[in-house]
Design a protein around this nucleic acid. Structure first.
Length: 605
RNA sequence: GCGUCCGUAGCUCAGCUGGAUAGAGCAACGGAUUUCUAAUCCGUAGGUCAGGGGUUCGAAUCCCUUCGGACGCGCCA
């Protein structure tokens, strides 16, 4: 099914060509104001200007050559030279029949043919609980994956976790210090114990991520003042980097503990990531030295103050000097820039990515600009491969400052989601106390988690937003509960139909033609027909809020229809059509919310 | 100092590559419920789109500038 706006665009372009001989973009847009119809062509004024003719007269000539009678009423010329289009109910009916015939994709064809796209997002660190800072990357990245997948791309999610480097060495050191007795561990290599015994010890003293995090923080505090300890830690870092089995055993354990907790959250959030998608810094550890070597060999990287740097053109520091991307510190250690370069190279050369999308906050913009520039200089990224940094703003507290707990700590993602769910539970208790406990819990989870995600998606990605449980859990306005409620109401009609002995699915199956007469029916039908346009713009600009805006619009149109048009008590001339409008609305909301945004819908709430 | 993003109704936010009289929700006010979930719907009121200049037939949108805010800028990630 071709998007309506695309059909009109092509028709008007052809008409312009026929009328003027010019090939110009007719600038077709959805009308901002329904008084001007459903779509409008804005391009005539510019073309008239170019052809030095009167825009209204030109619009008349174009309309003369234009044949859109199969989908629109006669186009109207308005204002300085707009052409307005109003869709015919008959055409809407035909489109809806096409949507009806495809319950999987709702009649929407993929626009892409398996182009490989890598999406890098989430990126938590070993030995640390995920906090609000990970929320946006994680869920925006997930929505982008879902959108692009639906558009037909071959999407490869990548979770670039922080599982290597100095801090991980400290984590391992902390674990060893707490698990092994000092004397068995005196050499800091664990050589006094067999590897079997080490595994045995690890198994016998299981620790949680929270304990691990505390352990790490304590060590990192002590290390600042205790030079002996600092030296021991440095030793451990070296041993780990040499991949000595005992150290590796603890490292693996830390990684396992962290990932287990991360995946609990990912699952809680709606099945984000598979285990295969985890490819963290440790994966690139052996590729860092060759990357730096290659940059040196190519004459791109040079030594400066003992560090290995790349001075990409166009980057200037505070003092106005060339700004380096440091790929190796003066002590020989590699940095995140090095890892990012190695990962980038891997993704292009070994994963075969044609596009790489990085979903991180806006503060890393300069870093990625430089990494991209250096990768291009090194020739690792061919012309036809695009690199995109998808940025987002910060999550703020009610005071307008970065969202923190009262004690100034980062809010743990787990706590935040639990809070949302328990608040949702209270509302369900209040509104629908007679539901079985299990059902109430399911609803609370769907609404609570959904509310947090939806609030994020419905905001413009690039701006900061103020986090508020009260607003995101409100039943009115552009929120998850409102959307989910709209869905539950449609489903309720289906249930009521069964109770009344109305065979809705049979009536739907027998429909050959849809009758649209009431204004709210037509409005709802039009909105249903625009779903593909909403998905397209959301996927094109990687902005989920275009999709939520559409869904909110749809739910609003449905609610208006719902109050205006009885379904089950309607006569035989309109009931099947109304049942179909309900059915398609439910499928559309479920698809948008669940398939594309990973937000659960519930039959009752 | 340089760079990036931002400033839209009392509050929280939309506004898609420039398009017609700038839109939602909350809060305020007025209506609608014997009927499919009122967790809803319909309506009223509310804006010098931070200020100024420019480009354009047309600017919240593009350019310049002032003010205000957030963030970034050599060995953390």
């Amino acid at each position: 099914m071709i998007r309506i706006i695309e059909i009109l665009s092509v028709r008007v372009r052809d008409a312009i060509k026929a009328a003027t001989g010019l090939d110009a973009d007719p600038l077709l847009r959805i009308s901002a104001d329904s008084r001007f119809g459903d779509y409008q062509a804005n391009g005539i004024m510019a073309i008239a200007k170019q052809a030095k003719s009167n825009p209204r007269a030109l619009a008349g000539q174009v309309v003369e050559k234009l044949d859109v009678a199969d989908l629109c009423e006669t186009p109207e010329i308005a204002g300085p030279g707009f052409i307005n289009f109003r869709l015919k109910p008959d055409f809407l009916a035909i489109r809806l029949m096409e949507v009806k015939s495809d319950s999987v994709r709702l009649g929407i064809s993929p626009t892409q043919n398996h182009t490989k796209v890598v999406v890098d997002f989430s990126g938590p660190n070993i030995a640390k609980q995920m906090h609000v800072g990970h929320l946006r990357s994680t869920i925006i990245g997930d929505a982008i994956c879902r959108l692009l997948e639906f558009e037909g791309y071959d999407v490869i999610p990548q979770n670039h976790i922080g599982d290597w480097g100095l801090q991980i060495g400290m984590v391992v050191h902390a674990m060893m210090a707490s698990t092994l007795e000092t004397k068995t561990w005196a050499g800091a290599s664990g050589a006094l114990l067999s590897i079997e015994e080490v595994h045995n010890r690890i198994e016998k003293s299981p620790i949680t991520l929270i304990e691990l995090e505390k352990m790490y923080k304590r060590l990192s505090e002590q290390e600042k003042t205790d030079e002996n300890l600092a030296e021991a830690v440095r030793n451990s870092v070296r041993h780990l980097q040499l991949k000595e089995p005992v150290f590796l055993a603890f490292w693996e354990n830390a990684r396992k503990i962290t990932l287990k907790t991360c995946f609990e959250l990912y699952d809680y959030l709606g099945g984000i990531f598979k285990l295969d998608d985890i490819r963290g810094e440790s994966f690139y550890a052996d590729r860092l030295a060759p990357v730096v070597q290659e940059l040196k060999d190519k004459g791109i990287a040079v030594e400066s103050d003992g560090a290995v740097c790349v001075f990409a053109p166009g980057f200037v520091s505070k003092e106005g000097n060339p700004l380096p991307l440091i790929v190796q510190k003066s002590d020989g250690a590699f940095l995140y820039a090095t890892t990012d370069l190695a990962a980038l190279k891997f993704r292009v050369q070994e994963l075969g990515a044609k596009k790489i999308i990085y979903v991180t906050d806006a503060r890393q913009e300069l870093h990625f600009k430089m990494v991209f520039a250096v990768a291009r200089m090194a020739g690792w990224v061919p012309e036809d491969v695009s690199l995109e940094h998808v940025t987002f703003g910060s999550v703020l507290g009610e005071d307008g400052k970065p969202f923190k707990t009262r004690s100034g700590e980062n809010v743990k993602l787990r706590d935040l989601l639990d809070e949302a769910v328990s608040r949702a539970k209270r509302v369900v208790e209040e509104k629908n106390p007679e539901l079985p406990e299990e059902k109430k819990n399911d609803i609370a989870a769907a609404v609570g988690i959904g509310a947090v995600k939806y609030a994020d998606y419905s905001n413009n990605r690039t701006s900061d937003y103020v986090f508020s449980f009260d607003r995101m859990l409100a039943m009115e306005g552009n929120t998850a509960p409102y959307m989910q409620y709209a869905y539950a109401r449609v489903k309720s009609i289906e249930r009521k139909a069964l109770e009344k002995g109305i065979n809705a699915s049979e009536e739907l199956a027998l429909i050959t033609n849809i009758t649209l007469t009431e204004p709210t029916e037509i409005e709802l039908a039009k909105t249903l027909c625009r779903y593909d346009e909403a998905i397209y713009s959301a996927a094109y600009d990687l902005r989920p809020n275009y999709l939520t805006a559409y869904l909110y619009d749809l739910a609003g149109k449905f609610s208006a229809f719902y109050t205006q048009c009885p379904v089950l008590t309607a006569g035989p001339e309109s009931r099947p059509s109304r049942l179909l409008l309900c059915d398609l609305t439910a499928k559309n909301i479920a698809h948008g919310l669940s398939n594309l945004l990973g937000i659960k819908v519930v039959e009752q709430m």
